[in-house]
């Protein structure tokens, strides 16, 4: 078995503030792990829509994050199997990330929301159809998994996945081609929501060139800036501060930053970020063979989840997609 080079280690910071005049914070987030094979880094933020028609969205965002973490653990376990198990091909993993995970996640979220409704609604409440019930729980989601072998991320609705590359370039790889106007967003409660999940797929072929900062935020942060470039400048500044002053200094002021942003966006504002701190000794990993090219790659899931993925402009072409049913097919 071959080993990778030095593995990246990640440190994290996180914070969330309630929007001005909001009765509760409808954002939810979670972060765990270090980015190693045994402890994959998993991050997620979700933004419950919050208005009267989404009265239970604070629960919907919590369900979204909790269920994503479960799905992400499964994904990471597939990508980095323990012991002598042979890891699946990157092509198979990419297919899983683009089609299987979004469908499983949305299905689990809907089941969770409908189950919660069944347990907690009273007979006095008006009879609602299942889609109406799901609307009550509407939420967005941005989630990411980093293992020594793979960096993958998913987004449904607004919010941002921001990546600062090893050479300092700020990218927002899952930004839609055309942003929704106003405060409308796609949602876990949308019909066939799994088709609206955007996926970022970036196998790590050169650990030394892994991103140095990965950040997940709800739209309360980005919408506080007068322009998109202002948000990117914030991310560049965050990266600079982490490099120059260290994590503790940034942790100390993060609540103040988020509160200021929230005053301008009026929205709950959440940030979860991970940045490279060091490298660790090499660990067991994938078999030898050509991997898909590294770097950001985003693509919206096409309409048909089964079968080989559609080629997309920013999606790396797998070595061979002729047989996606065999996870252990050699690369």
């Amino acid at each position: 078995m071959r080993t990778h080079g030095p593995l990246p280690l990640w440190d994290t910071l996180h914070g969330s503030v309630q929007g001005v005049n909001k009765t509760r914070n409808q954002d939810h987030y979670d972060v765990e792990g270090l980015g190693s094979a045994g402890q994959p880094l998993i991050m997620a933020v979700a933004d419950g829509h919050g208005s009267a028609v989404h009265a239970r969205s604070h629960l919907g965002s919590r369900f979204a994050v909790d269920l994503f973490v479960q799905q992400a653990r499964q994904f990471a376990a597939l990508a980095e199997p323990r012991g002598e198990l042979r890891p699946p091909s990157l092509a198979w993993l990419m297919n899983y990330a683009q089609y299987t995970l979004p469908r499983q996640l949305v299905s689990a979220w809907q089941e969770k929301a409908l189950g919660h409704w069944a347990r907690t609604s009273s007979h006095e409440e008006p009879a609602l159809s299942p889609p109406d019930k799901l609307v009550l729980y509407g939420s967005t989601l941005v989630g990411a998994v980093l293992t020594p072998r793979v960096f993958a991320a998913w987004q449904l609705g607004d919010g941002e996945l921001t990546v600062v590359t090893d050479d300092g370039q700020v990218t927002v790889p899952l930004a839609p081609d055309e942003a929704d106007l106003g405060d409308e967003t796609e949602s876990l409660c949308s019909p066939q929501a799994w088709l609206r999940v955007r996926t970022h797929w970036a196998p790590v072929t050169t650990p030394a060139r892994a991103p140095r900062l990965v950040s997940l935020t709800t739209d309360g942060l980005s919408k506080s800036f007068a322009s998109d470039s202002g948000f990117r400048q914030f991310m560049a500044g965050l990266d600079d501060r982490l490099s120059a002053e260290g994590a503790e200094c940034v942790r100390a002021v993060l609540p103040e930053w988020l509160a200021k942003a929230s005053q301008h966006s009026g929205d709950d504002t959440t940030l979860v970020a991970a940045w490279h701190t060091a490298t660790a000794p090499a660990g067991p990993a994938a078999p030898a063979g050509p991997a898909a090219p590294a770097g950001p790659a985003g693509a919206a899931a096409p309409a048909e989840p089964a079968g080989p993925p559609e080629p997309a402009a920013r999606t790396p072409e797998p070595a061979d997609i002729s047989d996606m049913t065999d996870p252990y097919r050699s690369e």
């Binding site: 989404h54 159809s129 109406d132 609307v135 106003g182 409308e184 796609e186 009026g266």
Partner: peptide
């Protein structure tokens, strides 16, 4: 109403606009 967030496809299901 203009300043409240909503799911983009809510018009299919929302019966009571705010």
């Amino acid at each position: 109403a203009a300043s409240q967030p909503v799911a983009g496809f809510a018009d299919v299901t929302v019966k009571q606009p705010p």
